[in-house]
Design a binder for these strands. Sequence first.
DNA 1: AACTCGGGGTA
DNA 2: TACCCAGAGTT
Length: 349
Amino acid sequence: MNQLEQLPIPLLQWFQEHARVLPWRSDPTPYHVWISEIMLQQTRVAAVLDYYRRFLDALPTVAHLAAVEEDTLLKLWQGLGYYNRARNLQKAARQIMEEFGGVFPASYEEILSLAGVGEYTAGAISSIAFGIPVPAVDGNVLRVVARITGDRGDILNAATKARMRAALLETMPKQFPGAYNQALMELGALVCLPNGAPLCEQCPAASFCTAYQEGLTGELPVKAPKKARRVEKRTVFLLFHGGRVALRRRPKRGLLAGLWEYPNEVEAGPAALEAWGITPRTLEAGGAGKHIFSHIEWHMHALLAETADDTLPDGWVWADGRELEEVYAIPNAFQAFSDTVSARLRSSL
DNA sequence: AACTCGGGGTA
DNA sequence: TACCCAGAGTT
């Protein structure tokens, strides 16, 4: 790992010149850094920007986050994905209020104890907000380190990750841990690009990078292939009555936990309506949609019905157009039907 | 160690 | 298509 010893000075200099202007960098309080880091988990910078601003506008402090209604919180997170991040954020905010007297904890171990904060995020908050010299090893950093050091270990393997983290801890410039960690990630995001397409001629580490010097940028990093997705054929029921549409809340655990949805079942037909005690007055096909998750693929067909009355199973609700927009958090998986639904709600006014 | 958990940009 | 993204929690 000798190459990493040569990295800090050229990388910090490169970062000074090329760092992107990002909202969470302008005032890096622990709260700001924390919220940004949680939003950025497995999520690109461009996707986070608007959510970050809206979130801090609505919930400017830990106390606000600890006290907010769950539906309001999920609405702020709607479309960002990995919704347990939002629930863990509130769990951690309540930890901070109760265990730490409302003051954001200032040690790596305490930060790591917060819900939704793992090794990476604890390192990022510790180094950026508190100046504690610990690494923050994300996917970018794993790729950068694998290439610079020529490490052929699988970067998804825990031992490989631990080895790289240890090497980074050894060679970290103790005066600028936050800038150094961000510089490593920035290099991965802007220059040391994945899929064998790095921009090595722009890289401050090119002169001592193993992968570049030995022509291995196409082989590194090594990463095990993922298994295939399973396909689910789902029938989505778009049920209307009196200018409103039926929604139900998804279970508290599992996929899209706690969000609202148009009732849907795997390979169901009109018989499902009877089982729910719903009597259709009209019934027609309502279009199709596809949504791809990391591990599941939904192939959806809609059945569209006007119901004879307003009876619904327990816990289901009738939502009007305004509530659909402002109250209920509905995942993007159902986006294919949103035009159909809003058109139907408008036409029945 | 393997699996679950979103959604979208990119080639 | 397939890959990847400022990963964490559960099994």
